[in-house]
Design a protein around this nucleic acid. Sequence first.
DNA 1: TCATTTGTGGTCTTATTAGGCCACGATAAT
DNA 2: ATTATCGTGGCCTAATAAGACCACAAATGA
Lengths: 77, 77
Amino acid sequence: MIRQSDKINLKRLGLNIKKLREAKGLSFRELSYACEIDHSKISKIEKGLINITFTTILQLAKALETTPSELLLTDFD
Amino acid sequence: MIRQSDKINLKRLGLNIKKLREAKGLSFRELSYACEIDHSKISKIEKGLINITFTTILQLAKALETTPSELLLTDFD
DNA sequence: TCATTTGTGGTCTTATTAGGCCACGATAAT
DNA sequence: ATTATCGTGGCCTAATAAGACCACAAATGA
């Protein structure tokens, strides 16, 4: 029952994470080691396939050496 | 299986939301109307009892007339 | 050529959010 | 005094995130 606008926003979040990960030159598996999130899950997150929770956002932010606020710094609908 | 540090961070998020809600002089029920989240759930969120998802963060941010990024603008562990 | 790494997507179980409703005691308003 | 509103917490079901593992094709490197 996930809304269309949510799908778009999840993709935007995913792209933001992807951008930050690639800026650090990390592979999914490398980032996975740093935040204890399965590499396949990170892949799904970046593609906007999962509606992640707040704590997952915290994990990613820490591993990417940024803040949760920065992770969500994008235009959402 | 929720970690202790997560509990702390969830409380901090809750306090941040509470602060924004009260700054607008809204009750739980009034905010509930604006974002279509049950008022009892908002109460639990502010007390840090729920690990909300990204889309719920978006809903709250919109209803509080702020950004998701601003909603997470606090020091987390 | 062969081995390694990479991103992707599938499966499965368990834990938990989402979503909704209800009831209560306390507080505030009339 | 009584009515309305407040925050809180309990309950339930359905949906789905979490977490973990596996397999594979394509790209990369030796």
